[in-house]
Nucleic acid binder design. Structure first.
Length: 581
RNA sequence: GGCGGCGUAGCUCAGUUGGUUAGAGCAGUGGAAUCAUAAUCCACGUGUCCGGGGUUCGAAUCCCUGCGCCGCUACCA
């Protein structure tokens, strides 16, 4: 909590912009979205000024190829997925302050400003390249859309510039028997010359190293990948032969049929969307600048590991080239969530061709949101890949969230409401065990906060469950159902203490399970704060203040209904049949 | 090939800057309890800390090396 409050006045949180060429799935959520959302919800509870920015990434060649295949316009493709993904995030409770689009007109301006500043700084030059061109489609093809025979080992399914089998890398013209890797394109691609714009990454080597050296606290996987790049920087092509993207802001006929590379403009989308937010919400065209240019802003990127080079090397270099932008304080890169296949006993990478993806829209149609959030947080792939497994999903949700925490809350509130007329009892005389339990509350809350602030979400949710475990032990030892028969004052003391735990649990669960938290807050007649980017009261700190004796309680309901084994088996089977997308 | 991450109990994983008999949850066995969402609590662990070598009074932790899994390798977004 120190680093959040001591050094920074506000926190800007971003989640990677999902590509608007498909539905988001649980793998995306576990890595880049749920941890970010939990973090932001925590900051808001603490009253920290926090802005959470996301949006759709809507440019690039793959979208145009999807449009081509379906016989629709690229605009129709991005509208479809932007709408679907916006709804999916909303239903899962991913609480963006703004979920924007790189197709917004404002984004052309932001992107071109970035490009021009880099150009003016001498960080951009042009080079002539030889690229694959499809005579049939009359367009250039990125390497991923060209296959052929490896010149080194003869593998017939080699990529355009690299062989998956023998690992060889080669120039485009060395590939044998090139063919387009696009359904419906039977032509043989040919090489054509094309002039492109390059970002001079080597010029940023020293500042990038200094910046990375200043952040030893980052996750090892992120630092490893970032240093790997920074120790061998090369210029990077930032334009493409396509008409779907931001026009290159140069006065040059060669730029006419080209656009800025989608990977250059995607992270700039964070800036655009902040600008749009300031315009819409603050009605202040300059209101975004404090979030990007003031040293009091702490910027945190949440991404999957595939995104590390862009967020820990390229985008920071682009920001450095602007002159007046801040850099990220942390890049929280996650590994991947795989799918565990019970039939084979093996972990599988999620892929469309395998049909083993679980889309968010399918998940929220069939499962409680809190259950999804709980499980995905509990297995977040923070240091290595993890597996989604149906049996584990049910066992952990039922056995931990429902049985340990949910049931504790329920047994405590039920007894209290029945025996004390729906009010928190008087504390009366507290014994050693009571005081110990009360003392454990702030201790455990601090431990959860420490985990969250260190981006250790699995640990945080585990510590949350631990508070429930401690409470059950206390409850069992105090035996209020026994003392009730002989000593109502003692029973009242026990339940008073338990009610304090329940209140803390309510606040502690808010970032992870906002649905359950809202239901519990209603039962306790507590108001959870609704802080926004302007910050507010530190409700997390207030969570450990006691719920006064006499406070009215409503009849409790099960916060987290248990999942039915047969229903889960049905869903697992549907998933196995490829119906979960 | 180069680079990075990971390898700890049947399973999933924790193990700060090297320090007493290496921990938790789940599963399993036995017991207690009956307030509660048939939910809880207590007891029970002979683990080659992936193998090998080294540094050290002392290594799961640091160094070297081998093996295994995963990923990246710059035109996949």
């Amino acid at each position: 909590m120190d680093s959040v409050e001591k050094n920074f006045e506000r926190t800007l949180v971003t989640s990677a912009l999902p590509y608007a060429n498909g539905h988001i799935h649980l793998g995306h959520i576990a890595g880049a979205y749920l941890p970010a959302d939990i973090y932001v919800r925590y900051l808001r509870l603490r009253g920290v000024k926090a802005l959470y920015v996301g949006g759709s990434d809507e440019h690039g060649v793959p979208i145009t190829l999807t449009a081509l295949k379906e016989g629709v316009t690229p605009k129709e493709v991005i509208d479809r997925y932007h709408t679907a993904n916006t709804a999916a995030f909303q239903r899962l409770g991913i609480s963006y302050d703004i979920y924007g689009r790189t197709s917004w007109p404002l984004h052309v301006d932001t992107t071109q400003r970035f490009f021009k500043a880099l150009d003016a700084g001498g960080y951009i030059h042009t080079e002539e390249m030889e690229l694959w061109y499809s005579p049939q489609l009359e367009r250039f093809l990125p390497d991923r859309y060209v296959k052929g025979t490896c010149p080194k080992c003869g593998y017939t399914d080699a990529n355009g510039d690299e062989c998956e089998r023998c690992g060889a890398q080669y120039a485009a013209h060395e590939l044998l028997s090139p063919r387009a890797n696009i359904p419906g394109d039977a032509s043989s691609p040919v090489l054509r010359k094309s002039r492109h714009w390059f970002l001079d990454l080597p010029k940023f080597e020293a500042p990038l190293k200094a910046w990375l050296d200043g952040h030893p606290e980052w996750r090892p996987n992120v630092k490893g990948i970032a240093y790997g790049w920074v120790n061998d920087l090369r210029s990077r092509c930032i334009t493409r032969d396509t008409d779907w993207g931001v026009p290159i802001p140069v006065d040059d006929p060669d730029a006419e049929n080209k656009r800025i590379y989608v990977w250059f403009d995607a992270p700039i989308g964070y800036v655009t969307n902040t600008r749009q937010w300031a315009q819409d919400k603050l009605r202040d065209a300059n209101g975004w600048e404090i979030w990007w240019k003031d040293s009091g802003t702490r910027m945190i990127h949440f991404i999957g590991k595939d995104n590390v080079p862009f967020h820990a090397v390229i985008f920071p270099a682009m920001l450095m080239g602007q002159g007046d932008y801040i850099l990220a304080d942390n890049v929280v890169g996650n590994e991947y969530l795989n799918i565990f296949n019970r039939q084979t006993g093996k972990s599988e990478k999620g892929s469309k061709s395998r049909g083993n993806m679980i889309s968010v829209r399918w998940a929220v149609d069939n499962l409680p949101v809190d259950a999804i959030r709980y499980y995905l947080c509990a297995i977040a792939p923070e240091s290595k890949d993890s597996d989604f497994d149906w049996d584990e999903f049910m066992n952990r949700y039922n056995g931990e969230l429902c049985d340990v925490v949910g049931n504790f809350v329920h047994r405590c509130l039920t007894m209290t409401v029945k025996n004390f007329a729906g009010r928190v009892p008087e504390a009366g005389e507290l014994e050693a065990a009571d005081k110990e339990m009360l003392d454990a509350i702030p201790r455990q809350m601090a431990a959860i906060a420490e985990s969250l602030e260190g981006f250790k979400f699995r640990q945080a949710v585990e510590r949350f469950i631990d508070l429930g475990r401690k409470a059950n032990v206390y409850f069992d030892a105090a035996k209020p159902w026994v003392t009730r028969k002989t000593d109502m004052a003692r029973t009242g003391a026990t339940l008073y203490v338990c009610c304090q735990v329940v209140k803390a649990l309510c606040f502690a669960m808010t970032p992870f399970m906002p649905g359950g938290a809202a239901a519990l807050a209603a039962t306790l007649n507590l108001a959870l704060p609704n802080n926004g980017p302007d910050g507010g009261e530190d409700a997390w700190a207030a969570a450990v203040a006691p719920l006064p004796a006499g406070s009215a309680l409503n009849a409790p309901q099960a916060l987290f209904p248990k999942l039915d084994r047969e229903r889960i088996a049905e869903l697992a089977e549907a998933h196995r049949q490829g119906e979960a997308f």
